[in-house]
Amino acid sequence: MSDRRRINGPPGATRPPTFVPSPDAAKVRHQRLRKPNELRKTFLQTGLVPSASGSAYLELEGTPGPKSALVPTSSTIKLSCAVHGPKPLPRTASFSPNLQLSASVKFAPFATRVRQGYVPNSIEKDLGLHLENALKGVLLPDRWPKSAIDVAVTVLEGEDDEDGDRFTGAALFNLLAAAINVAMTALVDAKIDCLDILAAGVSAVVPGADTKPVRILDPAAIEHEELLSSCVVGYLPSRDEVVEVWSSGGMSQQSEDGLIGYDDLVDSAIAAARGAQTVIQAVLLESVSSTQTASKKAVTRDNDIEMKT
């Protein structure tokens, strides 16, 4: 007699199903529908976490993938950031005249095809270090002595690279740039004094139609079969300063217009950062205007109540 309280497996051996992408998926995958200097559309919003001092949510527009693929690739980036502080350091900590910044990047368990663990891996540690270095260049640490601030970025979804893996090459740089942008928005939402609005952008050099290298802005890894070089830059537009640079690949490529060097690649990333700064400014102005409107309505409502009483 079988046990009805348990789900018994099949009596014989079984073979798990294997999902193979269709041959047409590769043809549609490596296509860039945007112009070389065109950025992806960005959705940015503040006030995501009410319990935090400041928070923000960022999402990049994804490239439409092939419908025939069983496991379609993704080029969408979704991040959330929460800022806690400034808060006093523990009494046991030594006196510090400057603000202590702690930045971390954590993948959600469902952010990748392979489920992520709770122990931070090497990619998360590298992203956290680069994010912390970039934010240190924009904060005013002497404003809050013996204080600390925590910036926590959560990766809800990341884009695929050309091999189908996650968070390598250009996908890693796009993730860092998005983390810097969403963290800067959350810091301003937390009313933290900063030198400027920090923005990050990514540029790359890819083979053109006639095998000549071409510079592009905001490269999506699944749109290009090969990336000759790529670079991410954290930039302060008003001060014209670069606070973070991370590059990979060969830095000298011969194109139709001449030799593409490291300076040209950085200039393209700065142009992408300026585009991201425009989005951040628009969202912050909208957030301030909505807050002022809400405060005016609250004052008017209080005055009406006092007059009625």
Rank of each mutant, 00 (worst) to 15 (best):
S122P: 09
S122H: 13
S122Y: 06
I123H: 04
I123W: 03
I123C: 03
E124M: 07
E124C: 14
E124P: 05
E124H: 05
E124T: 11
E124A: 13
E124N: 13
K125I: 10
K125Y: 08
K125M: 14
D126I: 06
D126L: 13
D126N: 08
D126A: 07
L127I: 11
L127T: 05
L127P: 05
G128I: 09
G128S: 14
G128P: 08
G128Q: 08
G128M: 13
L129F: 15
L129D: 15
L129G: 15
L129M: 15
H130T: 10
H130K: 15
H130I: 12
H130W: 12
H130P: 09
L131F: 08
L131R: 01
E132H: 04
E132T: 07
E132D: 08
N133G: 14
N133F: 13
N133Y: 06
N133S: 12
N133A: 11
A134V: 01
A134G: 02
L135D: 01
L135R: 02
K136M: 05
K136L: 09
G137M: 07
G137C: 09
G137N: 09
G137L: 04
V138T: 05
V138A: 01
V138K: 00
L139R: 03
L139Q: 00
L140V: 12
L140A: 05
L140I: 13
L140F: 10
P141I: 01
P141K: 06
P141E: 04
P141Q: 03
P141D: 07
P141V: 04
D142M: 14
D142F: 15
R143W: 13
R143Q: 11
R143L: 12
W144V: 06
W144D: 04
P145M: 03
P145L: 09
P145Y: 15
K146Y: 14
K146M: 12
K146S: 15
K146H: 11
K146E: 11
S147T: 15
A148P: 06
A148N: 08
A148C: 14
I149C: 02
I149V: 15
I149H: 01
I149K: 05
I149T: 02
I149L: 08
D150T: 12
D150G: 14
D150L: 03
V151N: 02
V151C: 04
V151H: 00
V151L: 04
V151W: 00
A152P: 02
A152Q: 14
V153E: 02
V153S: 01
V153K: 01
V153Y: 02
V153I: 08
T154Q: 09
T154Y: 03
V155S: 02
V155W: 03
L156V: 12
L156M: 13
L156I: 07
L156F: 11
L156W: 06
L156T: 07
L156K: 10
E157A: 05
E157S: 13
E157G: 07
E157I: 09
E157R: 12
G158C: 13
G158V: 03
E159N: 10
E159A: 12
D160T: 06
D161H: 10
D161Q: 13
D161K: 04
D161C: 11
